[in-house]
Write a protein that binds this DNA or RNA. Structure first.
Lengths: 137, 137
DNA sequence: TTCGGTACGTACTTTTTTGTAAGAAATGCC
DNA sequence: GGCATTTCTTACAAAAAAGTACGTACCGAA
């Protein structure tokens, strides 16, 4: 394990940030919001991530009990990753990050109304149920 | 500036995470929740941070328009840091992080009911008004 | 004229995170 | 046997973040 992972924090927020921080974790978790995914699916879906990084981040998320790993004993191997109950509860964090980040982007970079870098990972439904997020098509 | 700071993101969440990520920013922002603070106050209050790091993080937060810097032209110098309007809106993010992180800590480390590392940075009031956080005494 | 207090800046080193490239296991199919 | 497929490992290298140590400016007071 490369990443130094603290066991204790003086602050719950820091603990949370440590779980979802890093270059790839939000993106990975984002992909899992639409349901369980295989390793290869994630690898294709998370553009630019290397296999080493993907494995490493998945291991850490698993260690933090945010996602669960299911191995199907077949050849070639089939491994699926899915949110745990605790991981699903992260949606409130995602939502808050998404809302604030969206405002932030528009403020910092208001000219880019239709550009690629302006799109959100998540869209909040109009008739929103608390805690629910749907993935951007 | 040491930190590589992206200008564009494919995801608002990533933009948000970039603003509050890093080793010290949540702690600094946490201190500012109780009102504007001077450089020296922050330095004493954020245990362990070096002057270089404090300055650097404050500069980045200022650049991201999360905090504002006010210089009083006196000798010796007096400089105050305070949330901007946008920074204040981060409280929703803090709250979500805090709630999830708190559950996370109890799950990961359930034995530590009264230890130091179990305490929160924030306490949510019983009769909570939306978006309001008060600092832990 | 040296000193103190405040808020930095800068060169350099160490630590941490991320990336590159290659290999390995398991097994059915040709 | 040799190959393809999938899910990882591992050793090594590069890049980024954080830490160390020291220096600067201001001006009034001693």
């Amino acid at each position: 394990m490369t990443k130094k992972r603290q066991a204790y924090y003086t602050c719950s927020m820091e603990a949370a940030l440590n779980v979802i921080g890093g270059k790839w974790k939000l993106t990975i978790l984002n992909r899992l919001l639409t349901g369980p995914k295989r390793y290869g699916e994630l690898h294709r879906s998370v553009t630019g991530i290397t296999e080493k990084m993907l494995t490493q981040q998945l291991r850490e998320l698993e260690e933090d009990q945010v996602i669960a790993r299911t191995i199907y004993p077949v050849v070639p191997p089939r491994v699926e990753y899915a949110f745990t109950e605790s991981g699903e509860k992260l949606s409130d964090v995602f939502k808050a990050l998404e809302i604030w980040g969206s405002n932030f982007q528009h403020r910092i970079n208001p000219i880019s109304g239709n550009a690629d870098h302006d799109k959100s990972c998540y869209v909040l439904k109009e008739e929103e149920q608390p805690g629910q997020l749907i993935h951007n098509p």
